[in-house]
Amino acid sequence: MKERKAIWLPDAASTYAGDVDALFYFILVTSFVLFVGVMTAMVFFAWRFRRRSSDDRPAPVKENKIVEAAWILVPAALVAIVFVWGFRVFIQMNVAPPNAMEITVRAQKWSWLFEYPSGARSTELQLPVSRPVRLKMSSADVIHSFFVPAFRTKQDVVPGRYTYAWFEATRQDTFPLMCTEYCGQQHSTMLSSVIVQSQDDFEAWLQESLMAADAPPAERGALLYVQQGCQGCHSLDGTGVIGPSFQGLAGSERVFTDGTSALADDNYLREAITLPALKIVEGYDALMPGVYASLDPAEIDALIAFIKEQ
């Protein structure tokens, strides 16, 4: 928690955030001055030229060319300034440095998944400080939007194509990350964090999360549960909000929306992961995306082993 906060923008934490903020405050202050000026004139005129008798008929005012020219040219000049300024910072925000580390972002209802060049995966965005990072983003279902207020970064994540964003974090801290394009029921819970650490800590984290393929399947499954974003919908404590909880799932009798039922054995679990739309458990909607069919067989085995332990 921060000690003292500004009223407007949150504390900045990326290299270009300062430029954005300077422009924001320039417009804010200029607008404030203009606004106070216009309102002062309005209130003053309303008082100074108030009606004194019901048949007041003031003489028409001749238009003053100098005043008119001023109120055309001054706003025009001001918007020209902020356009050019905004354009320059925008270009900076759009062009990633060539040495940027590329992280793949996968968005889906309603979770984020980040993939690193080494193959590591995380549902939180882990970053090294002072190193430019470029995000290559895509969505599995509808349009989402990647927003980190502290970085002043936002970019829609669109299905069927890649979109990009880049930034360089300037300090070590944890920052909120939100979805800002309306994406359905749980839009407001599509949150994550950006965790910025030192280069060394980041490397250590990378190592840790690249667990060897020969780890016990259930342990590997536990990692996949987090990395693949299963946790966004499937709890381990018996509560089922978006999807059924994993607690006690394996071996139980599942009743489906079409009235049929089945025992949750290995084959059912496998089918539920790879073809989720086939059978929908009663009380839930067909929301799970089909992307998990692309997990490799060993990963599916590991997840099943993990689910059976719950």
Partner: peptide, 17 residues
């Protein structure tokens, strides 16, 4: 005036949505 604010490219990125 806030329309000018959100019309400015770099600032709108932060304020959009």
């Amino acid at each position: 005036l806030t329309g000018i604010m959100v019309g400015v490219l770099a600032v709108d990125v932060h304020l959009h949505d």
